[in-house]
Design a protein around this nucleic acid. Sequence first.
DNA 1: GTCTATAGAAGGATAGAC
DNA 2: GTCTATCCTTCTATAGAC
Lengths: 204, 204
Amino acid sequence: MKEQQKLTEEKIFDAAVAVFEEKGLAGARMQEIADKAGINKALLHYYYRTKEKLFDAVFEHMAGFMFNKLFGCLDQKLPWKEKVALFYKEHISFLQSHPILPAFLLNEINQHPERISRFFTSERITLLRQNLFDQLEEDMKQNRMMRMDKMQLLINLIALSVFPFAAKGLLEKLLEQENITFDEFIEKRKKELPGLVINSVKIR
Amino acid sequence: MKEQQKLTEEKIFDAAVAVFEEKGLAGARMQEIADKAGINKALLHYYYRTKEKLFDAVFEHMAGFMFNKLFGCLDQKLPWKEKVALFYKEHISFLQSHPILPAFLLNEINQHPERISRFFTSERITLLRQNLFDQLEEDMKQNRMMRMDKMQLLINLIALSVFPFAAKGLLEKLLEQENITFDEFIEKRKKELPGLVINSVKIR
DNA sequence: GTCTATAGAAGGATAGAC
DNA sequence: GTCTATCCTTCTATAGAC
């Protein structure tokens, strides 16, 4: 009954997450999702009507997961240096648990940018300004860091952590030649990035 | 005759580049490529046999285009500071002319990493070591820059320029709220990145 | 709620005329 | 070399029994 239904719907959803993450909307097959969930195709449509609707549910969930986590780290009330340290610690650990999530999201967003409008509301941006940009402005005014465009700084912060995951396939090929694993590379990165970023905006 | 054949094959190829770049292998439709080339589906198969083979030709060409340009900038015999300046000038200008190329390549590489083995040979890596890493090692030894992992530094360099393009759809949504266009954002970035990167590895 | 069987559409590929 | 017409597989979606 209710309990069993929950389980089936969940099994479908989890299988859909796995397949969509790996293959994307266009490349995913309903049959593969059904197989992975241990049920048949008809049940997918019973619970989610269409492939698109199933994908929407998956995308919505994963995008929320990612962005809430990301903004969550940046919203903390902490001095700049500590905020950077916390951000990379938390955020990269999150990415290590979900290594192909960035590639999936970036690709689907490029395909249909309107999908994320709901996550980048003006309220969300206002919050970002209050919790991050105002703080940076204060630090710059006090000469505690180099004056620079705050949005550029935010993108730098994110690029340095997210890009290696978005380019995981490429990076692994590159690292193969150096006899180092992706995980080792990321682990080292997690330690080095905070110092690097703080250094990059230091006034000498 | 020969001349006309060249033109048709070229029209197909160009149309295929446009459609595959936008939709990816799985999302692209032979019909759309044919329409864009101004011919019919049958001709696609006459020239390229299968969708896969057409895609292979497109991918091979675009990947070569991207990586040759990228490594080309880094191979120059120039002091570190000038190399960084040249790299961002050349490389970002290239990306501005091909803004959706990174997203396309990264996605297809994640889907089939073996496709790029041919571009990351041990010879190519050896060249990179000689032309970039050895130089960095020398600069570090002379205390002209902070000691750090050279591969990490290379990825930082690339992440900062490539990520905004790989995340173009997302970034545009974010910038919308700030009333700034993607192009303006990139133009500013092109000016600011060299100083930032050099600063980030400076010894104080 | 879950299954089997199948409809129906889409898309890749080919045959054959010109 | 190029076209029209069509085949055939794949995939989404539904009908209907249990």
